[in-house]
Amino acid sequence: MSIKTFELISTTDDGTKLVSYVALPEGASEENPAAGILVAPEWWGVVDHPKSVAERLAEAGYAAVAMDVYGEGKLTTDAAMANTWMEQVLADQDMLMARCRLILNDFSDQLAVNGDNLGAIGYCFGGKVVLDMARDAMPIKAVATFHGNPSPKQPADQNFTAKVLVAHGRADSMVSMEAIEGLQSELDAADVDYTIDVYDNAKHGFTNPHADERAAKNDVDLGYNEAAANQSWENMLEFMKANLG
């Protein structure tokens, strides 16, 4: 199947260029627009992993965009640098959400994308980003997180209308089971429809094939788990099919 990929440049009010990566399925057009999925990367930025996620989504029939929330296409394999950039954007979460909304709008404006039929998936830091997009009432029908940080910008309320799928590793030392239970309570209070899947022997970053290499380089507790990665991907595709078609 041949997919089409290109950079999508969104310019913020202060002139920052957000360099996102779009993958479109074969046959998507103005006459036949595809449901869209926004991909919020791990704290490394739009590196190979989120790009390949966008491409795999396009192969599955979805238009997808890996979102550059840092701006200027910044990416790194250094955890200290990644943490600095993440903390910079988290210091102004309204700005972060404004960037996500801008990318969402620019992506929705693509003729091959059905802007009325959108989902979002996020990895680690990106898990927080996509949950916050739903908490901020962006027009997203379904949100999936993989080893995501669930800490809220503000707690979910009646404006949170997306369905939620959470893929969490039981051996994750960075996002605790207590944090996941906190998310459960938050979503229950807002009457959100959600599913939480917990994968045994799966560490933080379990979906990323580069996790072991990054763990060794940065002395952080990450690990790839092929079984959990494959199962959580299949579950996410089923979830998106049920909610986006």
Rank of each mutant, 00 (worst) to 15 (best):
I3G: 02
E7H: 12
L8W: 13
T12S: 10
D13W: 00
D13Q: 11
D13G: 06
V22T: 00
A23D: 02
E26C: 04
E26I: 02
G27R: 04
A28L: 06
P33C: 03
A34W: 00
P41K: 14
E42N: 13
W44I: 09
V47P: 03
D48Y: 02
D48T: 12
A54P: 12
G61Y: 00
A66T: 14
M67L: 15
D68K: 12
L75T: 08
T76S: 15
T77M: 11
M81N: 09
M86I: 02
E87P: 00
L90G: 03
A91F: 00
Q93H: 09
D94F: 01
L96R: 01
R99Y: 01
N105T: 08
L118C: 14
G122Q: 07
G122R: 01
G122N: 03
G126H: 14
G127F: 04
V129S: 02
V130E: 15
A134H: 10
D136W: 01
M138S: 12
I140Y: 12
A142N: 09
F146M: 13
N149E: 05
S151G: 08
P152L: 14
K153C: 09
D157L: 03
N159P: 08
K163R: 10
L165R: 13
G169I: 12
R170V: 05
R170H: 05
S173N: 04
S173Q: 10
M174H: 11
M174Q: 13
M174K: 07
S176P: 02
M177V: 03
I180N: 11
E181Q: 13
E181L: 14
L187R: 06
A189H: 12
V192A: 14
V192P: 13
D193V: 01
Y194M: 06
N201A: 06
H204G: 07
H204Y: 04
G205V: 02
G205M: 09
N208Y: 00
R214P: 02
K217D: 12
N218V: 04
D221R: 05
L222A: 10
S232R: 00
N235W: 01
M236L: 10
